[in-house]
């Protein structure tokens, strides 16, 4: 785990990291008093470079790079254990979601590349078919993550037991699904630009 610097480098007012998280999630990260209960129960904390409570500390101190380059924001599986137990009711999974989507917007190289590839492939399939196509998910992932045989040893037993389908199932109204992806992205961008976030302003604002 990394050592945190104990001096706030956060920018004051609306340009700071705290303000960004507050705007995106409604969560007041300063309410966290660093008891560590979240990290104690987090199933992934031992695999993370920053434990969940350290992510919040880094947000409190405005340490953008530390937060956005952390593996923690990619390894959190939103299991809700921390939020369920936090004495201050800080919605940590929501904060993790906001930090991750901000890191994506700012095109920061993800510390866990394969995790990002997985979600990209997953959503690409949903955008195309409206439903998940598992064979496409494994195939697409292996191609992009450059792990040609990942999970291949499971493939044959799964096929013979009827767990994998070779033909994707589709939603009838795929137009609407594609429109949902498009309009959700537009709304996302609109909200970010509306907040006048200092870092990485998007190129254009949709009307």
């Amino acid at each position: 785990m990394s050592v945190l610097k104990f001096a706030s480098t956060d920018q004051p007012g609306r340009n700071g990291l705290l303000a960004l998280v507050k705007a995106k999630t409604g969560q007041d990260v300063l309410a966290c008093y660093q008891c560590g209960k979240c990290s104690a129960g987090c199933p992934l904390s031992s695999a993370m470079d920053l434990a969940p409570h350290q992510v919040l500390r880094a947000v409190q101190l405005g340490q953008r790079d530390l937060v956005f380059q952390s593996s923690a924001i990619w390894l959190c599986v939103t299991c809700q254990t921390c939020y369920t137990r936090c004495p201050q009711e800080v919605d940590l999974p929501k904060v993790m979601d906001a930090l991750r989507s901000q890191a994506i917007q700012e095109k920061i190289r993800p510390a866990e590349r394969t995790v990002k590839v997985f979600h990209d492939v997953f959503l690409g399939l949903v955008e195309r078919f409206g439903r998940l196509y598992e064979v496409g998910l494994i195939g697409g992932y292996n191609l992009l993550a450059r792990q040609p045989l990942a999970s291949a040893d499971l493939g044959l037993p799964m096929l013979t037991r009827g767990k994998l389908e070779l033909i994707p199932r589709r939603v009838k109204d795929r137009e609407q699904i594609r429109a949902i992806f498009k309009r959700a992205a537009e709304l996302e961008l609109e909200e970010i630009t509306g907040q006048s976030v200092a870092a990485a302003p998007p190129a254009s604002v949709p009307s």
Partner: peptide, 19 residues
């Protein structure tokens, strides 16, 4: 349609709600 499962909220708040 797919509810977006554990992937939609990874990238987009509004996609995670709309799907």
């Amino acid at each position: 349609n797919c509810c977006g499962a554990s992937s939609a909220h990874m990238v987009s708040h509004w996609l995670a709600l709309s799907l």
